[in-house]
Design a protein around this nucleic acid. Structure first.
Lengths: 212, 212
DNA sequence: CCCTCTATCTACACGATTGTTGATAGGAAA
DNA sequence: TTTCCTATCAACAATCGTGTAGATAGAGGG
């Protein structure tokens, strides 16, 4: 009279979605990036990321070896996308004046979630700093980018060095804007709309650079 | 024959250091701030902070109620110190020209560990954002500071608004410098010494502001 | 000297997170 | 079909961080 094989749950739903390894990795990293942006640092644990993908956390560990492996892969993934975003931003303004190009670069850096990544890295105690492969790759890509930007700047004696300094300033401003943006205006007493002055500021700054 | 009361360890070292509540809180927050700066976000757990103070984690919980309580107290403590640092920075240059004053303000913001705090807050998903008491206190203090800074800026139609915008720009640059500082130069290909251009940049920017 | 107060400790309980293991199922190739 | 590979899962074990409870020891007041 008793059921023959009541393995705890009788009606199972053995509908497993089988992905290729690359599909699985991409899906996981996409969800991880989302969770970093929305839930902050605490969102980067294997259980929650796996849940966001609709898979078990054991699967995530299967693909990345460990939680640290997943996080390192996320750093690589996001820095790679950073490069892509920058290239796209540059190609979007192929023949335009430097100010507009640099403004676009600023916008790309400040609004793409890259600042969250940097804030995380600056807090992670170097553990996930882009060293090794991903770090050298990042440096390599930037070394390729600098001449492209330099070619669009007004002539100067040290064209490449000048381009590096310009990128450094733009990037620093973008990071500050991305990290402090949501909090600073309220504390200082500016309306969020007033942050538009950043465009003005950047414009002034860039104009100033041309006469440098 | 058996020992009467062998409470696990026979020879105890019951040398407890008894502090006043204020002493204990200060000691704990000092250690917590150190750990945030050095070990990043992971350093802010009660066990490690307590260990750094040479006390048990139960004592930390006794004084702050919970881990969250300790962290909130740390935010209050560090923002209060931020205000103190700014005031000290302003008093250090009582009669000096605005550029030097603002450069000093930038230096204070960028090098005091405040950027770590902001990076943490921007990643903590608002949980520890300075709301309530500490937040309104911070805003209050800044509202008191703005006129002081405004009085030192060249005249303009909207003196207070101008001061707010100047502070916003300086603060944003400082945050970007503090967060990205250690990583950016290497990636972009600048020597760490080249970051001195930031002083030059700030100087130019501030000169530009005067004619605004 | 005794009493009271409480800062501090040790020990434990609990939940969350990580990582492992063995079994299973999806899919492709034979 | 049959076979093989492996992506996937449920269940377990181990560890870590948080929080609680009861006991203890400084220190001041009576």
């Amino acid at each position: 009279m008793s059921a023959p094989k009541p393995t705890q749950l009788s009606v199972r739903q053995p509908v497993r979605k089988r992905r290729t390894p690359n599909e699985a990795r991409d899906e996981i990293l996409l969800a991880a990036e989302d969770r970093l942006r929305i839930h902050g640092i605490d969102g980067l644990n294997v259980v929650d990321v796996a849940k966001a993908c609709g898979m078990s956390h054991a699967t995530v560990l299967h693909h990345f070896g460990s939680t640290g492996g997943m996080r390192r892969a996320l750093v690589s993934h996001m820095t790679a996308r950073l490069i892509d975003d920058i290239v796209a931003s540059l190609e979007q303004h192929p023949e335009i004046e430097p100010p507009e190009m640099l403004r676009s670069l600023f916008h790309t850096l400040a609004t793409g979630g890259h600042t969250k990544l940097l804030a995380w890295l600056s807090l992670s105690g170097e553990e996930f700093a882009p060293s090794g492969e991903s770090g050298s790759m990042l440096i390599e890509h930037f070394n390729a980018l600098i001449p492209v930007i330099a070619a669009r700047l007004p002539e100067s004696p040290d064209q490449l060095g000048h381009a590096r300094r310009v990128v450094f300033m733009i990037a620093t401003a973008a990071i500050g804007f991305g990290v402090g943006g949501p909090l600073l205006p309220a504390v200082i007493g500016l309306s969020p709309d007033d942050t538009d002055i950043f465009s003005v500021w950047l414009g002034q700054q860039i104009d100033h650079l041309r006469s440098n």
